[in-house]
Design a binder for these strands. Structure first.
Lengths: 225, 225
DNA sequence: CTTATAAATATTGTCGACAATTAGTCTTGA
DNA sequence: TCAAGACTAATTGTCGACAATATTTATAAG
């Protein structure tokens, strides 16, 4: 038998660590939206060869965080209100489905965990208001767990490994801290209830409305400017 | 002014051509499902260096056609009935939304084109039955155009540049030629009608049912075996 | 004969260099 | 002053070689 088949950490390659670090820097705005990446510069910064760097960059392109043009290079995707709205449409669609499936597949333990999480979020929210960052992260955590609960690996890949990084990027950039915090909390509660009741149809509707409301919030703010 | 800004073809790099060729070979089953790819072997076959090949491979990973493990290499994704059903769920979700948006955004010209396309499909179907391949390709062409008509670039990327290649892969592999051909044609007609009527809500419902029916078809066939 | 260990082989990860292309600078002419 | 073209510099695309890891084969012990 092989040694520690379960605990064996999947050996990280240099490209892996650079990939992860770059992803964070892009998401958190440390590397600007729309900016062009210089391969020689980055390779020097990380003290790796361009080959290794390019490996990391191509994976970031796969995540939708970078764009590439032949003979020109990689650039960070440009954030725009239109693209943000597009993301909302896709989330509305996919997460609605994820929620329906979660109602069918999520285990009681995971549902309980989700409830506990929500309680914590509510407490921190009432204790120290204005901590928009934590709120937003908590919100995404909630959505993340429901998608995981769907059990659909394709959904999980599309949302958790691609779209959610874009979502976080927008939040860092635009600061989505909205007056929807309290409402959103209520909506989360109702969604959990529907999941607990195994009412997939309702769960889907509630999730779609929940995300749709966020989108409309952005659209309204956009029109008033 | 730069020479032919519009007609200028986006210069193809070696990696580009290999990427396209490999994609086709994978989709059409020329390279087997689940098989491991040998970098030295492929590089030799295409008469390119491993660096260039790896560039192409990493892009194929981004499309979801290849999987990669550190220090082990790339392998073609393994097709399974479960994964096929997962794809149907995601398509049902995304294409439903695409259809709703298409009803809002699609131009009259594009709708007319779609109608003509359907007529052609119907003719070839009645003329020479059994040409399952053409039918299936035609079906995907129909879906493709509606997604394009949605105008949502994210949706277009997820469906047309990723999922549809997986779908075609399954069809080549499993041969989805089903007795649903005639029914599917009717459903397509109704979908177009809803789009033409700008009834996005109905268009979404019809598309979801259309794809859901295909999924159930597979599920039933699976259970009877 | 089976299992476990060790050597040998093959494959992937990483590197630095050169070729091809693009971007920038300078000159020249009107 | 501006524009077009030539020249220079910088960047990306591609290559082959070496290092690190995994796989296979060979060997030895039980």
């Amino acid at each position: 038998m092989q040694p520690n088949t379960f605990t064996a950490p999947p050996k990280l390659t240099r490209a892996d660590t650079v990939f992860t670090d770059l992803r964070q820097r892009i998401v958190e705005g440390d590397i600007f939206t729309g900016s062009k990446l210089s391969e020689p510069e980055l390779a020097k910064h990380y003290e790796i060869s361009r080959s290794t760097l390019r490996d990391a960059l191509s994976r970031l392109e796969g995540c939708g965080l970078l764009e590439r043009k032949a003979n020109i290079g990689y650039r960070v995707v440009t954030l725009s209100t239109e693209q943000l709205l597009e993301i909302f449409r896709v989330r509305e669609s996919l997460e609605g489905t994820a929620c329906r499936l979660a109602a069918k597949n999520m285990s009681k333990e995971h549902i309980d965990d989700l409830r506990k999480l929500l309680v914590i979020h509510n407490q921190t929210e009432s204790l120290q208001q204005g901590e928009a960052y934590m709120q937003e992260e908590g919100d995404l955590d909630f959505h993340f767990r429901i998608v995981m609960g769907s059990g659909n690996k394709l959904l999980i890949r599309l949302l958790c490994e691609e779209l959610y990084y874009l979502v976080r990027m927008y939040r860092f950039q635009f600061g989505m801290a909205s007056p929807r915090a309290k409402k959103a909390f209520r909506e989360h509660e109702n969604i959990i209830q529907a999941i607990e009741d195994k009412d997939g149809e309702l769960a889907e509707i509630l999730m779609r409305r929940h995300i749709s409301a966020s989108r409309l919030n952005v659209e309204n703010r956009m029109n008033t400017l």
